[in-house]
Every structure is written in structure tokens, then in C-alpha cells.
Design a protein around this nucleic acid. Structure first.
Lengths: 214, 214
DNA sequence: ACCTGAACACCGTTCAAGT
DNA sequence: ACCTGAACACCGTTCAAGT
């Protein structure tokens, strides 16, 4: 009954370059870089460490000398995403009008998510449960949230540590993340060229909702 | 170089019951049911059609006579989730106070997400891109969104088809989905026993944000 | 019509061995 | 110290064959 099988390493057309060189060195950043490239090509669900290693030109087992496992690699990738998001929030246009300041912050977040949809999905991916998270991921994420709180602190003109700022930052983050996630998942057939319009539309929704309650 | 390998069907301790019976019949619902069970056990990322089939006591290839592929199975599971969410929204407590009506709707949604975190993550999972969606999934999802619009229509006392209702439903959905997603991902170390408090806190955040702008 | 085992092309991960 | 191939235990999916 037992059959002999051909090895799956049978040099098929794609990938698996001869690997003439042995020592590459500085592998971790190369792995991360290629993982990022592959991520935008195939999406977060189909990203594999074998494919990433292959593209770097290194055996797939080499990756395990730099990352504990696939999840750790993904965590570092996601952490880099949160750091970029942090930067994107920092570079939002400034304004003195509080309403405009809020809008600018939300738009900076929203634009980042839509410029990097696969990365954004990875950052909030289902593989990251509370147990498997590494400090790098948590720190980067909390750093971005810190910037969010700073924005709201300006909008409300209150100290960043205040309870009101926390509640409002939570509300804003929930809303903006939710809208980004829903649109990335295609629940709305919105015009891709006009994300600002969609954001404004949703923000006006809150005004309708709250103007009769306050 | 070629080595003969033992078959991976080598009757290891777990699963792979002898399969004495041949014809099971009515397989699709059984598959879906066991998929749901496995989903809450292992989470959306590790759900496999082989494991599901195994638990039903059927060969893994049998599943492909009822679902085009793994994605179709997942779509049906997610669609069932949206139908349950729809029901959960329908059974929210009724009230005449608009602000309470909004709160009740959001809470019903939020509670569903937290009672079914793995299912909720699957419903908005990265594997569902616009191309691979089946009508069943889209219809169920739009059905739930329809109920959301109905709630907002009551809150604003405006017709469901109005632009204001659409904007406000979008705002509410974004916010509630965002808060559910963030908490399920563990970004907040909130007290698990007090979801209502968290929701109220976030909603008060909007009041702080909007009371200076209206 | 419905289900099966065998096979193929992938995965993540470990480990003894090579440089 | 860093990288390798071989191996193991999984995957999704197809297909000719069985009932």
C-alpha cells in the first residue's frame, strides 16, 4: 500500500533559487521587507514563511533563527504597521479649529488604512490573541493610541490623562477603525476616489444622532 | 535521493474513525454544525475542512460535494452569523426614548459580538474579499444592516430610506463594530463583566466631542 | 447521487548536520 | 553563530474509483 513519493522540493519553476551563497547575514530585516511585499500581493491570510524565505533566497528554516515562529514574524510586521500609523497621525495637517482638528486626525487614520489595506487587516488580524502578543506589538499599538489621545486632548483642550479625553479617544478610535474595517471589507460600495466624502457623511450621521439628545 | 515516506493517513491517535458506514446523507448541515463547534474551540485562523470532516466522521473530500471550497463553507458559517446578529438586533428591548433606543440597539449588537467572538471575527475575516463572496453571505450581511437602519429610523423618526438614516446607521455601525473589534482584540483591558459600562463610556465620549461643535 | 482513498502541491516547525 | 536539507505532521483540492 505504501507508495514512494517524489520530494516536494522538486525544483518547480517558481522560487527555490540555487542558493549559491551560504551566509546572508542581517536576515531579519530582509525577511520582514519581503514579508511586507508578499503581504500586499497575496493578503494576510496567505502569507507563508516558506514563501517569504524563498523570495529572500534563503532556506525556510533560516527564519526560525530570527523569529520564534510565524506569529512572531507577523507580530513584528504588524508592529511596524502601528509605528507607520503613529507617524501618519503625527503628520496630519494642523489647524486651530477643534472640529477640523478632529476631522484631520480621523482622515489621517482613515487614509493610512486605505493606503495599506492588507497591512491594516494584519494589524487587527484574528491570529493575534492576547496570549501570543509580543511586547513590540503591544508597545507600537499603544504608541499609536497615545497619539490618538494627544489629538483628542487638543480637540477638547483638556489634559491627555483626563477621563474625558480617554472616553473621547476611545469613541473616535472605535468609529474610525470601524469605518475603515467595514469599507476595506467591502460592505459599502463607496467611490474609492472619495474617501473624504464617506468620512464626512458618517460624521454627519453622528450630528443627526446627537443633536436631539444634547 | 528520493525517499519513500509513510502515508500521512497512518491512523494516529486522534480522529479518523473507522468509518464503518458509507452514506451519511444530509451532510451539509452536519458539516456546518461541526465547523461552528470547531470554530469556537480553535478560532477562525485554525479552522480546517479536514478537521471538520474528521469530526463529522466523513472523508475530507466529501465536503467538496456540498461546498465549492473552504471559502464557501466559511461564507455559509459567516452568513449564519449575520442571520443570528439580525435576530439579536430584532430582539433588543423596546423603548420610547430615542436615546435609549439607540443605546439598546448598540448594546444588542455589542453583546452578540462578545457572546460569539470567534464567529464575529470570522464574519469580518480577511479571507472574505469582494471577489470570493457568495450571495448568501452578502444577503445575510445586508439583512443585518437593514435592521440597523430600521433601528436608526426609529431613533430619528425618519423614513428608513432617507439619507440621514443611512448616514446615521453607517456612523452607528462603524462605532459599534469598531468598539467590538477593538475589545475582542484585547486593545483595552476592560472588565469583561461590564460591557455596558464600556459602551456607555465610549458613547459619552461622543457627547464630549460634539457638544462644542453643535 | 454521494462518498471514498490516493495523490499533489503546499503549509509550520524541529533537528541533526554542515560552514 | 548562522544556515542547511530531511523529516514530520499537518493543510486545500482534484480525481478516478467505489456504493
Amino acid at each position: 500500500m505504501r507508495l514512494s513519493r517524489v520530494s516536494y522540493q522538486n525544483m518547480s519553476e517558481s522560487g527555490s533559487r540555487k542558493r549559491s551563497t551560504y551566509h546572508v547575514g542581517n536576515l531579519a530585516p530582509l525577511l520582514l521587507e519581503e514579508a511586507r511585499n508578499l503581504l500586499v500581493e497575496v493578503g494576510p491570510a496567505k502569507l507563508s514563511v516558506r514563501a517569504v524565505s524563498d523570495r529572500v533566497g534563503v532556506s525556510s528554516t533560516a527564519a526560525y533563527h530570527h523569529f520564534a515562529n510565524k506569529n512572531a514574524l507577523l507580530c513584528h510586521l504588524a508592529a511596524a504597521g502601528f509605528r507607520e500609523l503613529h507617524q501618519a497621525l503625527r503628520h496630519r495637517p494642523t489647524t486651530t479649529d477643534p472640529q477640523q482638528a478632529l476631522r484631520n486626525g480621523c482622515l489621517a487614520y482613515f487614509d493610512f488604512a486605505h493606503r495599506n489595506p492588507q497591512l491594516y487587516q494584519l494589524m487587527f488580524g484574528p491570529e493575534f490573541n492576547t496570549e501570543t502578543m509580543i511586547p513590540e506589538y503591544v508597545n507600537a499599538r499603544d504608541g499609536a493610541f497615545g497619539e490618538l489621545k494627544r489629538i483628542i486632548s487638543e480637540v477638547l483642550n483638556l489634559p491627555v490623562d483626563s477621563a474625558k479625553v480617554f472616553s473621547s479617544a476611545l469613541a473616535s478610535w472605535s468609529f474610525t477603525h470601524g469605518l475603515a474595517d467595514l469599507t476595506i471589507h467591502g460592505v459599502l460600495d463607496y467611490p474609492a476616489d472619495n474617501l473624504e466624502r464617506l468620512m464626512d457623511k458618517a460624521m454627519r450621521g453622528f450630528e443627526y444622532l446627537f443633536e436631539r439628545h444634547l
